[in-house]
């Protein structure tokens, strides 16, 4: 072979064709890149800068470098005696966000796993219909779905009314504006994100393996535990991360269902740009949230790559 040397020379026609194609590709992508840079990536960089500036008195910033924003993420300085203590209010909100997101993920998994299995075992023709039923709520307004939950569980809502009518309870249970409400709402709105990837991996499930499991004396529970769950694990991981990430950054659901007190990270961030008037702190909190999400995202990508590797 004449061209075994690394980095072979392209012929002039090849070079022209390659250049034309890459120029075309770049030109086609440029307008979208400009808009995305201006209204998505660029602002994140600006925000990073803002997290190192000094807060202005009435919101906004003073253009002077300061580590105050980041400092306040973790520590609290008393206004009067200037003693420094751990910012327990912030940390408890971080903790609540993570805790509620994990609980939401688990609840969604408990509900989503059987549902995805149910869809995957339907006849091929009707599967698309069931999937469609899962997708519809996903594409409808998140605020409206949260609102629907709110109406159900409020003190004079349908659930309390029915329970009181049948004499199960005498006083309405306070469900709205609790952590339970937030968790219920997030499970409700993010459930499709659990079902869809779970279904994707269950659809590929080879039922001959399950037959083999039964053939080799496993009972139903053991087939589920030793055969099905290991086989669909990629779907479980994918679904869990897809539910966990938006839960962690949730803003609308905790605001509507949690009231003013039961804040999550999203609401804490909003507070800094509203009454809190500490933009650098808000920016630093946002970046912290982004970092946690990035780590989860990285796990997700790793999981995807591992599956691809196993399939090949």
């Amino acid at each position: 072979m004449n061209s075994s040397a690394p980095g072979r020379q392209l012929s002039s026609v090849e070079r022209v064709a390659l250049k034309r194609e890459s120029r075309r590709n770049i030109l086609l992508c440029t307008p979208a890149m400009i808009v995305l840079f201006f209204a998505a990536s660029g602002p994140l960089l600006v925000m990073l800068v803002y997290s190192f500036l000094t807060p202005g008195d009435y919101g906004g910033v003073v253009y002077k470098l300061s580590s105050d924003g980041w400092f306040r993420v973790f520590f609290h300085q008393d206004i009067f005696d200037e003693t420094v203590s751990v910012a327990s209010a912030h940390l408890s909100i971080f903790w609540r966000s993570i805790k509620l997101s994990l609980l939401t993920t688990i609840a969604a998994l408990i509900l989503g796993f059987p549902t995805a299995y149910f869809i995957a075992t339907r006849p091929v023709k009707s599967r698309n219909f069931w999937l469609f039923l899962v997708t519809i709520p996903f594409w409808t307004n998140l605020l409206i779905r949260t609102f629907a939950i709110m109406e159900l569980i409020r003190n004079r809502g349908l659930v309390n009314n029915v329970l009181m009518k049948f004499g199960v309870i005498e006083q309405p249970i306070q469900m709205l504006y609790t952590d339970f409400a937030i968790m219920l709402g997030m499970t409700y709105v993010y459930l499709p994100l659990m079902i869809l990837p779970l279904y994707a991996s269950m659809e590929k499930l080879d039922f001959r393996l399950i037959e083999a499991g039964y053939d080799l004396y496993a009972n139903r529970f053991r087939v589920l535990r030793k055969v099905i769950i290991p086989l669909v694990k990629p779907g479980i991981v994918a679904g869990s991360i897809l539910v966990f990430i938006p839960s962690l950054g949730a803003f609308v659901t905790p605001r509507v269902l949690g009231g003013g007190k039961n804040m999550m990270l999203g609401n804490l961030i909003e507070l800094q740009f509203g009454q809190g008037r500490n933009w650098p702190l808000g920016a630093a909190l946002s970046i912290s949230l982004l970092l946690i999400v990035m780590v989860a995202m990285l796990l997700y990508v790793k999981n995807m790559q591992k599956n691809k590797g196993e399939q090949n």
Partner: peptide, 17 residues
């Protein structure tokens, strides 16, 4: 496709480009 080397003629005229 574009040749990495050589020529292609059609009725004596080069058409590679």
């Amino acid at each position: 496709e574009h040749p990495s080397g050589g020529k292609i003629l059609l009725h004596g005229e080069e058409i590679s480009h």
